[in-house]
Simulated assay, not measured.
Amino acid sequence: MSRGRLLVVGGGQAGLAAARAGRERGWEPVVLEAGEEPVGSWPRYYDSLRLFSPRRFSGFPGFPFVGDPDDYPGRDEVARHLRGYAEWLGVEVRTGARVVDVRAEGSGFTAELTDGGAIAGDALIAASGSFANPCVPTIPGRDRYEGRVLHVAGYRSPEEFAGQRVVVVGAGNSAVQVAHELAEHARTSLAVRDRVRFAPQVVAGRDLHWWLRATRADLLPPAVLARLVTGTPVIDTGKYRRAIDEGRPDRRPMFTAFTEDGVAWPDGAWERVDAVVFATGYRPHLRYLGSLGVLDEAGTPRHDRGVSAVRPGLGFLGLEFQRSFSSNTLRGVHRDAGHVLDALSRQPRGVVVG
């Protein structure tokens, strides 16, 4: 017996995981994907992006990556994997279906689309990711700076910056990766507020993710993890640490302001800079839920491990640290999907709980 229709907003890794978990629990999933195919944001990431987890730990249940299990897949391979998984899964995926608003209808939901259409469901999973909502900090003087400012979401390759003076802001994996490749083409600095923390990619002959699984550290709740680890480490074979130590790129404390043609450093020096690339993360992209009252003032969902704390029948997937360190990754999202769909399947309908 069907539990009803499950609307899934977003057709990337989180949306496909939700569709699978929902179908396994008796729901009839319909995936609403704004793009032309169910591959999420992967084709829009920078060209050189590679996963830090090897193929053996990055595939989906029953659908492993093809190729050397100990090698690290690149951006385009991940997109192909998602494309193949969606076909293998065989759930209903509606592409070109961008959701602009979600209304509560009795105990269910109606999703309104940009083309004027609408589709009703008995439960809804918001799995639209965060790529469309990059986070850029507010820095004095930004409005008068005449150089180029972009978030890493809009960065593709280093060649267009050849011969320029570039500052990359951030201390995470993307910041270090992008600054490293830019340094081969441009005079590049990595600007950080604190310091860059490194974690070895291989420990005692085993990939870090083998150890995360063997020790079950991958499953630690975020609150526990925060007490054990400070900041987000850059996973490194040693090449990034070595390059930064050699000044390729050089590491600087975060600049204090923009000037008309550059930046002001903390020591008071001003420097002409052609471009600033912010690798400063993303925020959930959930504006279509605004009318439901399920988000806080910052637009972040009010939830308990992916289950809405406000409205029954509503869940979230793909949030950073939703339940664990790996929640918004290929290797972790299916675990979260099972938890969220189990919870929604047990809920009574039609009662607002907050």
Rank of each mutant, 00 (worst) to 15 (best):
R242I: 07
A309M: 09
S345I: 12
G11F: 06
D250A: 14
G147H: 03
A86T: 06
N173P: 03
C135E: 13
V202T: 12
A264R: 13
H303R: 03
I235G: 01
A120F: 03
F278I: 10
A214Y: 08
R335F: 06
Y85K: 08
Y45N: 06
R94T: 07
V93C: 06
S48P: 00
H339W: 13
F258A: 04
G163I: 12
A171G: 03
F278T: 01
Q201N: 10
L319W: 01
R75Q: 02
G108P: 07
T188V: 07
I244G: 01
E92H: 11
E297F: 08
V229L: 11
A132P: 02
F131E: 02
L150Y: 06
A243H: 03
V351H: 08
T95M: 09
A123H: 03
G90N: 08
Q201C: 08
Q164D: 04
S58H: 05
L219A: 14
R20Y: 05
G116H: 03
N328E: 10
S58N: 07
T138E: 15
R75I: 00
R287G: 14
G121P: 01
W27Q: 04
P266K: 15
Q177T: 04
V39F: 03
G293W: 05
T188R: 05
S308P: 01
G354A: 15
A199T: 09
S48F: 05
A97H: 04
G354V: 13
F60G: 00
N328H: 11
Y45E: 01
S291I: 08
V30E: 00
A34I: 04
